[in-house]
Amino acid sequence: MTSLTSRLKGRSELGVALLLGAAGGLVLWDAVGLVTPYSKSDPVGPKTVPYIVAGLLLVCAVMLAINVLRGGHGETEGGEDVDLSHPADWKTVLPLAGAFIANVLIIDWAGWVISGTVLFWGSVWALGSRHYVRDGLISVSLSLLTFYGFYLGLGISLPAGLLEGIL
């Protein structure tokens, strides 16, 4: 028991194997449910490729799990603006995701100008800016600008929502 828990420790990558396995299982389950009509013009049918994909995902899941348990791990992606010396900063990522979700929830009801403002202002705040006035001005003008830009330039009318009639 103890050896298992100690082995699992620091192996969050097993979650990736789990995800791959789940995806593979899902593809397989979905493919089984498909009907293959007998047809001369389509000997391959709709099932073959899903089976192959499911097989690939499941094999990868198993091999990745073995690989991780034997001590292998993926090379975290670096970049110009990425500092891997500190662990993931959830205090930034979670509020950022929160701003994003807020936008998804209110966009159809409140309209793009309001939800876009919330999104940008919230993201900027999550990323550590504390110039509330400046950030607010930028958020509102960006949202207005894109709203009219899309309407006049691209002919796409984003939802006006609560501000219907004003904009």
Partner: peptide, 24 residues
């Protein structure tokens, strides 16, 4: 400043994906 840069990426990503079908 980075906050504007990355908030801008999220903002335009959302806008772009939403404008495809206008559905949340």
């Amino acid at each position: 400043p980075r906050p504007y840069l990355y908030a801008g990426i999220l903002f335009f990503a959302t806008l772009g994906a939403y404008s495809v079908n206008l559905q949340a």
